[in-house]
């Protein structure tokens, strides 16, 4: 399975953001977009078309799956589809984050980016 994970890396940027957004909890498309906006710290957001190109691929790769609406928000827009991160999706996300972390460390070693202050490390 680990070999299979390696085949999926590196993830496209939007796919990484979607998996990261779903790591916070199950969400529908619009909520995923708002979380991505929050993660990126920008008002520029992916269109619904771009999001679903990524979502369909992630779903068919088994990284995310459709789920029922969480308790208490059944009265929400009936058109909503909720998604959650699968166990395999979480491992792929961890592997991608590990890859990115190693990249950042290497960048710090070469002084491309500032090293974090000791107090925060």
């Amino acid at each position: 399975m680990d070999g299979h994970i390696a085949e999926l890396l590196p993830l496209p940027n939007l796919s990484t953001l979607v998996l990261l957004a779903l790591a916070e909890g199950d969400a529908h498309g619009w909520a995923i977009i708002r979380r991505i906006r929050e993660i990126e710290g920008t008002t520029r957001t992916p269109s619904s078309g771009s999001l679903y190109i990524a979502m369909l691929r992630l779903e068919d790769q088994g990284l995310v799956e459709e789920t029922s609406a969480p308790e208490g928000i059944q009265g929400d827009d009936a058109r909503r589809r909720y998604y959650r991160l699968t166990a395999f999706g979480r491992r792929v996300l961890e592997a991608e984050m590990d890859r990115l972390t190693r990249l950042v460390r290497r960048a710090q070693e070469w002084n491309v980016v500032a090293r974090p202050a000791r107090g925060h490390a």
């Binding site: 529908h28 498309g29 999001l51 589809r81």
Partner: peptide
């Protein structure tokens, strides 16, 4: 799989 949700996102935006 996607049309209704895409319209929901369009409406929300």
């Amino acid at each position: 799989r996607v049309v209704e949700e895409m319209q929901a996102i369009y409406d929300a935006r």
